[in-house]
Design a protein around this nucleic acid. Sequence first.
DNA 1: ATAAGATATTTGTATGTACAAATATTAATT
DNA 2: AATTAATATTTGTACATACAAATATCTTAT
Lengths: 140, 140
Amino acid sequence: MKTSECRYCTCPNFLAGTVARKIEKMAAESWKETGLAPSHAYLLLLTLEEPGIQAGIIAQHLQLTPSTITRLVEKLEERKLVTRVSEGKQTNVFPTQKAREMKPLLKKCSEDFHEKYTELLGKSDSKQFIQYMTRIADRI
Amino acid sequence: MKTSECRYCTCPNFLAGTVARKIEKMAAESWKETGLAPSHAYLLLLTLEEPGIQAGIIAQHLQLTPSTITRLVEKLEERKLVTRVSEGKQTNVFPTQKAREMKPLLKKCSEDFHEKYTELLGKSDSKQFIQYMTRIADRI
DNA sequence: ATAAGATATTTGTATGTACAAATATTAATT
DNA sequence: AATTAATATTTGTACATACAAATATCTTAT
């Protein structure tokens, strides 16, 4: 059934959730090769770009709560992809060697996803979607 | 931190998730008075509009998987808001008297949310957002 | 009429996320 | 210096959601 035929197709909350789930599924497919869920992949990329990044900063960049970051980092730690170093009250997250070796693959998957997405929506629509969503996010 | 300043502010998956969480929070606030989470509220409204609606049809309208519907209905059943009547291999969901009494409140909350949302984004932007999201959802 | 396949739902399990409370550290006030 | 307040993170718990497998029913083919 098409979303436009659904009972709550005019409810922004319903729509936002539906779209998010669909896009996440697409993203998960792209990142499958890494064995990581999209949010884990983002977090890992953050640590690769800025080794030792503070947990709270990660939370801000991913727009997730601190407790969620703790949980995501735990998972990545189990897979030996990051290590936590606490420094006073704060926690710094470093990528491991294994993660560093994975970087090219992560980049590739990220690009794959962007391509797949752009192809699906067309260049102008996909660009517009990003602008639009950003604007919305900043106002809510 | 504004979403437009985040590291992955150009990633559609990140954006979609962020926006969905923010809108859901807004919606949850509006539905607080009912004690129901937004998705429970939608489901309940569906059963009120079409008593005896089949579980699978609910799944299609809410764009959720059948197993999720089972779980949502279970919760509503615990609160004595719906009852399940199985008819052969299918399950029909009926609202209880308690749910029927709740209908005006549900409607009110739904309208509250729409107003709050429209006020926040402005009339034209909020309308555009809906059109845009619907189009995206149908193509993914 | 029975076996095989198709359909609808539920169950078991796992994941990502959040909230509230707990903990640990640092800063500020008296 | 000691108490209080502020800040950063973690823990306990709960929830919405999904996937895969199990179950129950119905349909079709032989």
